[in-house]
Design a protein around this nucleic acid. Structure first.
Length: 152
DNA sequence: GCCAACGTTGGC
DNA sequence: GCCAACGTTGGC
Protein backbone atom coordinates (compact mmCIF):
# COMPACT_ATOMS: atom_id res chain seq x y z
CA UNK A 1 0.00 0.00 0.00
CA UNK A 2 1.36 3.38 -1.04
CA UNK A 3 1.17 6.61 0.85
CA UNK A 4 2.90 9.91 0.42
CA UNK A 5 4.72 10.48 3.70
CA UNK A 6 3.49 14.07 3.77
CA UNK A 7 -0.08 12.81 3.63
CA UNK A 8 0.19 9.80 5.94
CA UNK A 9 3.48 8.27 7.03
CA UNK A 10 4.60 5.01 8.58
CA UNK A 11 5.58 6.99 11.68
CA UNK A 12 2.03 8.27 11.87
CA UNK A 13 0.69 4.73 11.67
CA UNK A 14 2.99 3.71 14.53
CA UNK A 15 1.71 6.64 16.55
CA UNK A 16 -1.93 5.90 15.71
CA UNK A 17 -1.77 2.16 16.32
CA UNK A 18 -4.07 1.54 13.35
CA UNK A 19 -5.79 3.48 10.60
CA UNK A 20 -8.63 3.40 8.07
CA UNK A 21 -7.22 3.25 4.55
CA UNK A 22 -9.73 5.81 3.35
CA UNK A 23 -9.74 7.91 0.22
CA UNK A 24 -8.99 5.26 -2.38
CA UNK A 25 -11.02 6.25 -5.45
CA UNK A 26 -9.89 3.73 -7.99
CA UNK A 27 -11.91 0.64 -8.84
CA UNK A 28 -8.99 -1.75 -9.16
CA UNK A 29 -7.63 -0.77 -5.77
CA UNK A 30 -11.14 -0.86 -4.33
CA UNK A 31 -11.62 -4.41 -5.60
CA UNK A 32 -8.39 -5.57 -4.01
CA UNK A 33 -9.44 -4.18 -0.65
CA UNK A 34 -12.99 -5.47 -0.96
CA UNK A 35 -12.28 -8.94 -2.33
CA UNK A 36 -8.74 -10.00 -1.65
CA UNK A 37 -7.43 -8.51 1.57
CA UNK A 38 -8.18 -10.66 4.59
CA UNK A 39 -7.63 -10.09 8.26
CA UNK A 40 -4.02 -10.90 9.13
CA UNK A 41 -2.76 -10.41 5.56
CA UNK A 42 0.60 -8.69 5.61
CA UNK A 43 1.13 -5.36 3.86
CA UNK A 44 4.25 -3.57 2.67
CA UNK A 45 3.90 0.08 3.63
CA UNK A 46 5.44 2.13 0.83
CA UNK A 47 6.30 5.82 0.90
CA UNK A 48 5.71 7.25 -2.57
CA UNK A 49 6.56 10.60 -4.12
CA UNK A 50 9.59 11.19 -1.90
CA UNK A 51 13.35 10.86 -2.39
CA UNK A 52 13.95 8.08 -2.67
CA UNK A 53 10.64 6.24 -2.58
CA UNK A 54 10.90 3.32 -0.16
CA UNK A 55 9.22 0.59 1.85
CA UNK A 56 9.18 1.64 5.49
CA UNK A 57 7.48 -1.16 7.34
CA UNK A 58 5.22 -4.17 7.45
CA UNK A 59 1.60 -3.79 8.48
CA UNK A 60 -1.33 -6.18 8.55
CA UNK A 61 -5.00 -5.99 7.76
CA UNK A 62 -6.89 -5.71 11.05
CA UNK A 63 -10.34 -5.06 9.58
CA UNK A 64 -11.58 -6.43 6.27
CA UNK A 65 -13.26 -4.47 3.49
CA UNK A 66 -16.09 -2.19 4.57
CA UNK A 67 -17.59 1.06 3.24
CA UNK A 68 -15.30 4.08 3.12
CA UNK A 69 -17.53 6.52 4.94
CA UNK A 70 -15.42 9.50 3.88
CA UNK A 71 -17.14 9.22 0.47
CA UNK A 72 -20.35 10.71 1.84
CA UNK A 73 -18.82 13.07 4.36
CA UNK A 74 -19.21 16.50 2.77
CA UNK A 75 -16.37 17.86 4.91
CA UNK A 76 -13.91 15.20 3.76
CA UNK A 77 -11.30 15.76 1.07
CA UNK A 78 -12.46 12.44 -0.33
CA UNK A 79 -16.14 13.36 -0.54
CA UNK A 80 -17.70 11.81 -3.63
CA UNK A 81 -21.10 13.39 -4.30
CA UNK A 82 -22.00 10.66 -6.80
CA UNK A 83 -22.12 8.03 -4.07
CA UNK A 84 -24.29 7.55 -1.01
CA UNK A 85 -24.40 5.41 2.09
CA UNK A 86 -27.33 3.32 0.83
CA UNK A 87 -25.13 1.74 -1.80
CA UNK A 88 -21.50 2.42 -1.00
CA UNK A 89 -19.17 2.55 -3.99
CA UNK A 90 -15.87 2.85 -2.16
CA UNK A 91 -14.43 0.39 0.28
CA UNK A 92 -11.47 0.42 2.65
CA UNK A 93 -9.65 -1.81 5.12
CA UNK A 94 -7.99 -0.98 8.42
CA UNK A 95 -4.32 -1.75 8.92
CA UNK A 96 -2.01 -1.81 11.93
CA UNK A 97 1.80 -1.87 12.13
CA UNK A 98 3.57 -5.20 12.58
CA UNK A 99 7.27 -4.37 12.27
CA UNK A 100 9.46 -1.46 11.25
CA UNK A 101 12.20 -2.43 8.81
CA UNK A 102 15.63 -1.93 10.35
CA UNK A 103 16.67 -0.29 7.10
CA UNK A 104 14.18 1.16 4.65
CA UNK A 105 14.14 -0.57 1.28
CA UNK A 106 14.62 1.99 -1.45
CA UNK A 107 13.09 1.77 -4.89
CA UNK A 108 16.41 1.87 -6.80
CA UNK A 109 17.69 -1.06 -4.73
CA UNK A 110 14.51 -2.98 -5.41
CA UNK A 111 14.90 -2.32 -9.13
CA UNK A 112 18.46 -3.59 -8.96
CA UNK A 113 17.45 -6.85 -7.30
CA UNK A 114 16.79 -9.63 -9.83
CA UNK A 115 14.88 -11.57 -7.18
CA UNK A 116 12.14 -8.91 -7.38
CA UNK A 117 11.68 -9.18 -11.12
CA UNK A 118 8.02 -8.99 -12.07
CA UNK A 119 6.90 -7.25 -8.91
CA UNK A 120 3.95 -4.96 -9.70
CA UNK A 121 5.49 -1.99 -7.94
CA UNK A 122 8.47 -2.05 -10.28
CA UNK A 123 6.49 -1.94 -13.50
CA UNK A 124 6.80 1.33 -15.36
CA UNK A 125 3.99 3.78 -14.66
CA UNK A 126 2.42 1.56 -12.07
CA UNK A 127 0.22 4.04 -10.25
CA UNK A 128 -2.14 1.79 -8.38
CA UNK A 129 -2.06 2.72 -4.70
CA UNK A 130 -2.94 -0.79 -3.56
CA UNK A 131 -1.15 -3.66 -5.28
CA UNK A 132 -0.77 -7.39 -4.76
CA UNK A 133 2.69 -8.65 -3.73
CA UNK A 134 3.79 -12.23 -4.26
CA UNK A 135 4.92 -14.16 -1.20
CA UNK A 136 8.50 -14.54 -2.41
CA UNK A 137 8.77 -10.89 -3.35
CA UNK A 138 7.34 -9.97 0.01
CA UNK A 139 9.90 -12.08 1.85
CA UNK A 140 12.72 -10.69 -0.27
CA UNK A 141 11.77 -7.07 0.46
CA UNK A 142 11.64 -7.89 4.18
CA UNK A 143 15.02 -9.56 3.96
CA UNK A 144 16.47 -6.47 2.26
CA UNK A 145 15.06 -4.42 5.11
CA UNK A 146 16.67 -6.62 7.75
CA UNK A 147 13.49 -8.37 8.74
CA UNK A 148 13.08 -12.14 8.72
CA UNK A 149 9.50 -12.96 7.76
CA UNK A 150 9.71 -16.16 9.78
CA UNK A 151 9.77 -14.05 12.93
CA UNK A 152 6.54 -12.20 12.12
C1' DG B 1 9.62 20.76 -13.06
C1' DC B 2 8.74 17.37 -16.70
C1' DC B 3 6.05 14.16 -18.72
C1' DA B 4 4.04 9.44 -19.70
C1' DA B 5 0.21 6.72 -18.62
C1' DC B 6 -4.20 6.20 -17.52
C1' DG B 7 -8.75 7.14 -15.53
C1' DT B 8 -12.61 10.21 -15.85
C1' DT B 9 -15.58 13.61 -17.87
C1' DG B 10 -18.63 15.55 -21.06
C1' DG B 11 -19.89 17.18 -25.72
C1' DC B 12 -21.62 15.35 -29.75
C1' DG C 1 -20.97 5.10 -27.53
C1' DC C 2 -16.93 7.63 -29.24
C1' DC C 3 -13.16 10.30 -28.27
C1' DA C 4 -10.82 14.62 -27.09
C1' DA C 5 -9.70 17.19 -23.15
C1' DC C 6 -8.35 17.27 -18.73
C1' DG C 7 -6.69 15.88 -14.09
C1' DT C 8 -3.86 12.92 -11.30
C1' DT C 9 -0.05 10.00 -10.13
C1' DG C 10 4.55 9.52 -9.19
C1' DG C 11 9.25 8.38 -10.85
C1' DC C 12 12.96 10.73 -12.65
Amino acid sequence: MKSEPDAYSWEQLLADGSTHWDGVRNYQARNLMRDDMKEGDLVLFYHSNCKPPHVAGVAQVCKEGYPDFSAWDVDSNYYDPKTDSEEPTWMMVDIEPVATLSTTVELPDMRANPALEGMALLQRFQRLSVQPVGEEHFAEVCRMGGLDTATI
